[in-house]
C-alpha cells in the first residue's frame, strides 16, 4: 500500500464553512497589514452571526467591515482604527455608541495575557499594569486580586480561547508549515491559543523550500491552508504589496457616512460591490482590477 502525506490545502469557501454562528474566532495581522481577507469576505457572504472576534492586539478596518456587516456580537482588541486613514474605526464606533457591540476592553498587554492563559490551559494570567485604571470596572471579567506572595494588588486576566484562528502569512507548504515575511506581529499568540488554525497565504511553496530554512517556519501543524494571491487586499502584505490607500479611503468614507450621519447607503453599496456580489476571491480581484493590484508594489 502506498501511503501519501495529506495536503491541507482548501479554498476560502471551505475555510469559511468551518465558522459557525456564535463561535469565538481570532483574526491575525496588525491594523493595516496582513489580514486573511479572502476568508473574512466569505464569512460575510455566508451571513455568519453572533461571533466573538478576537482581533490582533491592535485591530483594523477588517474587523470594522465584519462589524458593519452584522457578524460580530463581541470584540476583543485594544485598539480599533486605521491610523492616519481614520483615528477610530467608523462602524465599530457606531456600533458601540448604539449599544450594538460588546467590547472586551483591554490594552495590548492584557490582550496577550488572555491568549497566553489559553495557550497554557490556565484560568488566568496575572498582570500588574492596569491597577488603578478603569479596566476592571468596564471589563468585569478582569478581576483585581491580592498576590499571595507579596500581598500587592494584581489583575487576573482570564483565558480567551479561540475555536479557530484565521491567519494571513506569505507562504506555506501543503502540509501546514507556514513562513511569514516580516515579524508576524502577534499571530503566534493566536496560533498557540486556538483549538484550530487556518492560514491564508500568498503562495504555496514546495516542502523542499521549507526544509531549506526551517528557522523561517513561523507556525507549524496548522489545520488548513488557503491559497489566495493578493489575499490581504486592501491591506498590506509584507514582501508583496503595500496597502491600497485609495480603497481604504473609499471604505472609510462609506463607513463614516453611517457613523457620523446615520446614512447606511454608502456602506451597503460598498458591501454589495466588494463583498456580496463577487462570489469568490478571484471574482473580488476582478472587481479591484489588475491595474490597481499591480500598482501596489513596494516602491
Amino acid at each position: 500500500m502506498v501511503v501519501e502525506r495529506r495536503s491541507l490545502i482548501i479554498d476560502e469557501r471551505e475555510a469559511a464553512s468551518w465558522i459557525r454562528d456564535g463561535m469565538t474566532i481570532a483574526i491575525g495581522g496588525f491594523i493595516n497589514s496582513s489580514h486573511p481577507m479572502a476568508i473574512v469576505r466569505q464569512i460575510i457572504r455566508r451571513g455568519v452571526r453572533d461571533l466573538t472576534v478576537i482581533g490582533p492586539a491592535s485591530g483594523g478596518l477588517d474587523l470594522d467591515l465584519l462589524i458593519g456587516a452584522g457578524c460580530v456580537r463581541k470584540l476583543v482588541t485594544a485598539y480599533m482604527g486605521g491610523e492616519h486613514y481614520c483615528p477610530v474605526a467608523p462602524m465599530f464606533r457606531a456600533a458601540v455608541e448604539r449599544g450594538e457591540l460588546q467590547v472586551w476592553e483591554c490594552d495590548e498587554g492584557m490582550y496577550y495575557c488572555a491568549l497566553r492563559a489559553a495557550a497554557q490551559r490556565l484560568p488566568f494570567t496575572p498582570w500588574k499594569a492596569g491597577i488603578g485604571t478603569s479596566f476592571p470596572d468596564v471589563n468585569p471579567e478582569i478581576k483585581v486580586f491580592t498576590d499571595p506572595i507579596k500581598g500587592e494588588p494584581l489583575l487576573a486576566v482570564p483565558a480567551i480561547r479561540p475555536d479557530i484562528a484565521l491567519i494571513y502569512a506569505a507562504h506555506a507548504d501543503p502540509y501546514g508549515n507556514v513562513q511569514h515575511i516580516g515579524t508576524g506581529f502577534g499571530d503566534r499568540a493566536l496560533w498557540r491559543a486556538a483549538d484550530r488554525t487556518i492560514v491564508q497565504v500568498e503562495r504555496i511553496i514546495p516542502n523542499e523550500e521549507v526544509r531549506k530554512n526551517p528557522l523561517a517556519t513561523s507556525l507549524y501543524g496548522v489545520d488548513a491552508i488557503v491559497r489566495a494571491p493578493y489575499g490581504s487586499h486592501p491591506f498590506a502584505a509584507p514582501g508583496y504589496y503595500i496597502e491600497d490607500a485609495a480603497h481604504l479611503r473609499e471604505y472609510v468614507a462609506a463607513a463614516t457616512a453611517y457613523a457620523k450621519h446615520g446614512d447606511r447607503g454608502p456602506f451597503e453599496a460598498y458591501l454589495r460591490k466588494y463583498v456580496l456580489e463577487p462570489e469568490t476571491h478571484a471574482d473580488y480581484l476582478e472587481v479591484i482590477g489588475i491595474k490597481r493590484l499591480i500598482s501596489l508594489h513596494e516602491y
Binding site: 477610530v88 455608541e97 449599544g99 476592553e105 498587554g109 492584557m110 492596569g130 468596564v138
Partner: peptide
C-alpha cells in the same frame, strides 16, 4: 491620569467611543 477608552458617564452609552488603550497601559507601567 488619562483616557483613551471613550467619553461619556455610562460605559454602555458612550457619547464618543475612542480608539482604545493600544499598548499604553502596559507600556507606561
Amino acid at each position: 491620569n488619562s483616557n483613551l477608552i471613550g467619553v461619556g458617564r455610562d460605559y454602555h452609552r458612550l457619547s464618543f467611543r475612542g480608539p482604545g488603550a493600544v499598548g499604553t497601559t502596559s507600556m507606561a507601567h
